[in-house]
Design a protein around this nucleic acid. Structure first.
Lengths: 73, 73
DNA sequence: GAGAATTTGTACGTATGTATG
DNA sequence: ACATACATACGTACAAATTCT
């Protein structure tokens, strides 16, 4: 999956969907890639990644701990 | 109410509380000050104001229309 | 225990797009 | 055409919590 900056809808929503699909294949408790890694992997900004993760958190798909990372809920 | 940048907790949360108090005194349908105005009034950034408003939106206290403004729900 | 590295949280600045008045 | 206003996006910086050496 890649990000479409033109007419693909908001980038943070696209990223959230990509991560949703990825999470679906991961076991509960597995750590997600760090924000920094996601920035590099998908070529988006820090704020966009955090926006996407906040959405997944709000959906209860992941849990996040400061200083540790985000994990599949 | 003012913002305490030291040890007063996250600014966006403080602002959200200030606005919650203000909204409690406003009639339903009344328009809130614009992001721009809140930025100037409280001396915080655009992103911080938006964060606070997003919180109030998530709580159902206000509704926001693109190109118009935010209103007491 | 100390210190460095990693990772998320918060905050600000700036720019562009879109919609309304 | 112009001003106003929110949404999205990128970049940057520092603080706080955790982990590792």
């Amino acid at each position: 999956m890649t990000i479409d900056h033109e007419s693909g809808g908001p980038v943070w929503m696209q990223l959230a969907q990509i991560l949703r699909d990825e999470i679906a294949t991961m076991p509960k408790g597995r750590m997600l890639p760090s924000v920094r890694t996601l920035v590099q992997t998908y070529g988006v900004s820090d704020g966009t990644v955090k926006h996407a993760l906040a959405e997944l958190r709000a959906e209860g798909l992941i849990v996040t701990y400061q200083g540790r990372g985000s994990y599949v809920a």
